[in-house]
Every structure is written in structure tokens, then in C-alpha cells.
């Protein structure tokens, strides 16, 4: 069983690496969808199937569709300009989490994983964590308004140009 978990972990890290480093935005979006799928599998293994389903439908479905929509509007572009931060310095900064892992490994602090499934998520969400729901509603309204303000003018201009032709 551990081998399966290890394979999922390797596939997850590989797809995340490819999503960030592959050439072509469409390929990056597809690798990101694969990363979402593998994250959802890991969440399911960790005992939260509800969140895994939401991650799968939102992360691998909705976000990928949005990416493809955005790429179809603005297209792909090769950018040639100087880095903000030298790649070596960025690599050093990004390896800090692995240094922490090595420290945990050496000092023998092993996290004890308890694979206990949650009782009833609905009770927690609707009774104990109502603030989260209000926050989510506010975020969704903000997102819809943001999209309307940002995309609507450009789409309207596009339609006007097409009608003019």
C-alpha cells in the first residue's frame, strides 16, 4: 500500500513540476488539472472524500475550463526579459521547506498520521463554522463582480468589432 502512496506522491510532484515548467500555457493548464486530480486522490486517502470531490470538480474542472478560456482569448506568448530574482537564489529559497523536512527527519520527530474519517461534515459547516459560509458567499459575490467588471468590457468590444465587420 505504501508503494501506491509513494507512486501517487511522485506523480503529484512530477505533474506540479511540469505544470510550472512546461512550455505552452495549454500544456501547463492540463498538467495543473492532473495535479488537481492527484491532490484529490491524496485527500480521499486522508479521509476526506467530500473535499476530494469538490477539489476534483473545481480544481480539475472549473479552473481548467477558465484557463482554456483565458488562453483562447489572449493566446500563448514567449516572454524574454530579465528575471526579478536570479534562478539560483529562487531555488535556494524554494528548498527551505526541504531543509525543514531534513531537520524533522534527522531529529526523529515523526508526525503520527491518524486516518480517521470525519463524522458529519455538514454539521460542522452549517452549525459550528457559519462564518466560513458567510466568507465563502462574500468571496463568490466578489469573484462574480470582479469577472463582470474585468472581462465584460473586452467581450463587449469584441462583439462590437465583429458586428462592425
Amino acid at each position: 500500500m505504501t508503494l501506491i502512496y509513494a507512486l501517487i506522491a511522485v506523480a503529484l510532484l512530477y505533474s506540479a513540476h511540469k505544470a510550472t515548467r512546461v512550455k505552452g500555457l495549454l500544456n501547463a493548464a492540463l498538467w495543473l488539472a492532473a495535479t488537481s486530480c492527484l491532490t484529490a486522490i491524496l485527500m480521499y486517502i486522508m479521509g476526506s472524500p467530500g473535499i476530494a470531490v469538490i477539489e476534483l470538480s473545481v480544481g480539475a474542472g472549473l479552473v481548467t475550463v477558465l484557463f482554456v478560456f483565458a488562453i483562447s482569448i489572449i493566446g500563448d506568448e514567449k516572454i524574454e526579459s530579465k528575471f526579478f530574482i536570479p534562478p539560483l537564489a529562487a531555488l535556494l529559497m524554494a528548498t527551505i521547506p526541504f531543509i525543514i523536512l531534513a531537520f524533522l527527519w534527522i531529529s526523529g520527530i515523526s508526525p503520527v498520521f491518524k486516518n480517521t474519517p470525519a463524522d458529519i461534515l455538514a454539521n460542522t459547516i452549517w452549525e459550528d463554522r457559519k462564518v466560513d459560509l458567510y466568507l465563502q458567499a462574500a468571496l463568490i459575490i466578489t469573484g462574480i463582480l470582479g469577472i463582470m467588471l474585468l472581462i465584460a468590457p473586452s467581450v463587449a468590444n469584441r462583439f462590437k468589432k465583429e458586428r462592425g465587420k
Binding site: Y5, A9, T20, M46, A90, M93, A94, L101, P111
Partner: peptide
């Protein structure tokens, strides 16, 4: 199992942070 998940978490954080810095 615990270490595999910790490696996944740290790997995703590292990869995302690195790409955020250089892209």
C-alpha cells in the same frame, strides 16, 4: 505514510514558490 504526505506538501510548496519567484 506520514512522511509521504509531508514530502508532497513540502514539494508542492517548494515548486509553487520557486515558480512564483522566477516566472
Amino acid at each position: 505514510m506520514s512522511y509521504i504526505i509531508v514530502v508532497c506538501i513540502l514539494g508542492l510548496l517548494g515548486i509553487g514558490f520557486y515558480c512564483l519567484l522566477i516566472t
